[in-house]
Every structure is written in C-alpha cells, then in structure tokens.
Nucleic acid binder design. Sequence first.
RNA 1: UCCUUCUUAGCUCAGCUGGUUAGAGCACAUGACUGUUAAUCAUGGGGUCCCUGGUUCGAGCCCAGGAGAGGGAGCCA
Length: 477
Amino acid sequence: MARLRIKDILKTTPTEQTIIVKGWVRTFRNNSFIALNDGSTNNNLQIVVDFNKTPEDILKRITTGAAISITGILVASLGKGQSVEVKASSIEIIGDSDAEKYPLQPKKHSLEFLREIAHLRFRTNTFGAVFRVRNTLSFAIHQFFNEKGFLNLHSPIITSSDAEGAGEMFHVTNFDISNPPKDENGQIDYKHDFFGKPANLTVSGQLEGELAALAFSDIYTFGPTFRAENSNTTRHLAEFWMIEPEMAFSDLNDNMNLAEEMLQYVINYALKTSHDDIEFLNQRLLEEEKQKPQNERSEFSLIEKLNFCLENNFERITYSQAFDILRECNYNKKKKFNYLIDKWGVDLQSEHERYLVEKHFKKPVILIDYPKEIKSFYMRQNDDGKTVAAMDILFPGIGEIVGGSQREERLEKLETRMDELGIPKDELYWYLDTRRFGSCPHAGFGLGFERLVLFVTGMTNIRDVIPFPRTPKNCEF
RNA sequence: UCCUUCUUAGCUCAGCUGGUUAGAGCACAUGACUGUUAAUCAUGGGGUCCCUGGUUCGAGCCCAGGAGAGGGAGCCA
C-alpha cells in the first residue's frame, strides 16, 4: 500500500479505509494523540493511539521531531479541531528524536532563534508556510511568463564584465589566493587565472537579457544574484534571486503594465493556491499585532493588504510630481524628515518613499522619470534632457521591490552617456552591438524575489524568506 | 560601514539602589490522569549571568575593550 500525503488525507471522506501515512511528530498529547506533519500542508493529521495496546517502548519513542510511519484506519474525528483522524493499528518509529536534545519544542520560538537553526526551522508552522508560499510564487512567476509567451533565459552566473557598476562583486578565481602569480609590475596576473581574466559572480542578468530580447522579443531570467555589499538590513542579502524580464518593441508604459500585471497575477495565484498557508500567516500576524500598542498596529491584515493590491491600480507618478508632493507636505515643512526635500534632483531617501507609499497614497506606487544623474547609464534619456525613463515600484513595508527602465536604444546617446560616466565602451562592445545592428526600443525590470515573498507572507526580515540566508559574516549551512 | 538597543537555564524572559543560596513559564525526567488541541496536576534535575580586564570589603548589576544578535540608516532588488 502506498503512503498518502497528509494534504490529500485531510480532503478524503473517512470510510474506515486503511491507510499508511508517514511524517514527523509535532506533539504527542495525553499519551494518545499525535499531531503528525509531513510538510505537504500546514495542517497536522491527528493520529489516535490506544496506549493500552501499544508497547511502552514504542510510546516512549513517539517524541517531538521523530519520524514515524502509521498504518491505521481513517475515521471521522470524535474531538473538535479536526474533521478526520487516523486510528493507529501499527506504529513504526523510523527515526528517533531525543526529546532532550531536539531544539524545537511545541511552543512559540523567536525568529532569531530559529534563524540559528535554519536546518530545522523548515519543520515549524511559520517556516513551513513561508517556504510553501515561496514555492507557489516561484511557480506562478514561471507560469505567468510562459502564458505570455516569454522565453526563460538562463543568464550566466559567472561574468567577466565589471563595467556595470551595480555594486561590489564577489571575485571568482581558482588561484591559490595566498600566492597568486604576479606580472613584471607585481600585479596579480589574471592571464594565468581560470578564465584568463578577472571574473565575478553576476550582480544582474540584465545586459545579457537585453541581448536575448533583441532576438526573442520577450524574455525573462529567474536566477541567483550576488552582491558583496556590506549591507546589514532586513531587506538585503548577499545572495538573492531576481526576476528580470526584458521586452523588445516596448516602452516604459508597457514596462509598467507588465510589472503591475505580473505582481497582481502572482499575488492572486498565491492567495488562491496557498490559501491555508497565507491564512496561517495572517493569523500569526494578527496575534503579533495584539502585542503592539494601538497606534502601532497596521490598518490592514495581511490578506486585506494583498486583496487591496489586487483591487486597486498602482499609483503612477513622475519623480517631479513626487518631489512636489514631498516638498509641500507637512512632514517636510515641519522638518520631520531627516533629509529635507528642497532641491530638485536629490535622491529620495527611504523615509520619503515610505511617506509616499504608506502615508500619502497608501498603496503601491510606481515612480518614473528620475533625474538622470541618480540613475544608470543604460536608461533611456527623455526629451527634457534632465530625466531618464526609469521606474521604481515601491511597496508598503518593503520599499523598492522593482527597479527598471526603458533602455537607451540610440547608439550615439548611449555612447555619449557612457563617456560622461567613464564606462569603458570597448569592454561592452557586445552590448553596444545590439544598438549597431537592428536596435529597437526595449524595456525591462528587475524584481527582487525575496522582497516579493516578504510582502506576500507578511514576514519582516528577508533572512526569514530564503532557506539559508547569506549575509555579511554569515554563511552557515 | 554608521547610529542605537540587547546578550541571565535547552527556549522565552524577570532580577530593586552593587549585598548573603540568581528566579518564573515552557521544555525535559518521574508519577498520576486518559478524547487531547502548546492537555492538566504533583515532584525533580538543570546556570562559564557572552568574553577579557578594571573599580569595590563585595559585581548578573558600575567602568573600559572585544565578540555576537536585533532594529534603524546608507548601498539596492
């Protein structure tokens, strides 16, 4: 007889059929009731043990964390709290778990503690829900782009281009780093390195994505990205996953439409497909909110917040409009911002972004047309000579979740800008070739996958939505 | 990297103005009970008070340095 998954058992009508189920013990109450979980769902299956007919040494080994196999009959539950349960006819201990040493207890643990035992935190309700939702979102993204006819491109993880300037990079080498070969000037001689030149882990697949978009029209990448920044925040990782679509024959407007449609699609998909898990996370947050003073509680529950995003269009405004709103707002006039908004052209600080999203509009905001000085070289220059066709999508509680732009497709404009910023054109000849041969308007963006998972799960620390977070001074597991 | 808070039992935390043997809940062990929902009740074991140095008759508590963690900022996704 085949083992059944708990998710399916809980949906089955009980007719006293005999089944086999395997999983890990969450709690064992009253010497009679096992809460069994196999990770297929957040809900546990209750196993009823007749302790009078079960050997003492088996009962003693049914401990929190133990892996067990149950053969029994599926019946309607006599107790409250579950509709079906399994009356065990035989119990096999597959893997013991010493209750005194097993760190997880049937009680609430702090997220900080669970982060230190990330190898075991999958077995908790919260992280079970988080990583099932993460899986659902990942699948939804692929499905969304597949339905739209986008080609999934595997952009390289090791690159030799360091011309992009998108942050500090991790160096890739097979040199003996205590004794690398040197040239006649005493400099490290990369000619003898594995690739014959310096190489790094990618900080973005965008440039490669553009090359493919100018052949396949619509592509997206979904892969790991690495930044060696010394960032210690709740929304940065040294290794994270990014989704980067790129569309040929498209402008900034198409770009905004795609990003908004995609975010709404995957949120909607998660709400429907991962309903139980999101409901659990929703309850978890409500409990947490009860601990807070009234004025710090959020207006919306997690599910209300997600639905709100589906029912309302994102607010679309230009940098200049945002600048005016911020300059004229009471916060600015009363000097409540740490950084005053006074001169057009300043970069917005996160306190300003939060004001716009959380206080002024109270919904996701798409900011476009930023001053060119504060944005990258590849963004398309607007006719005003001051701004570029950039877009950032800001989410409540998360901040920037998407950063993108229409790309500069005009060779001369692009080269001029690269010269101004001192970006070596010869190293990026391949990028410029797309502008030499059959260039066309195109646009794309980068979506931080973990930031999306943060938003949908209502978690607040990005280290809790990736299985094994890599951050400065932390590369455990 | 900067600012700030924290570090006491396996976990979550209390510990007064520096004072004698450092506590609670949960977990664990033993027993009772047996349709429980983080079961309940009784009993019990469990401590490098983060580390190093200093002040003091006396330091978990004060001072200096260090390590680690949380929150905020910058960089960004």
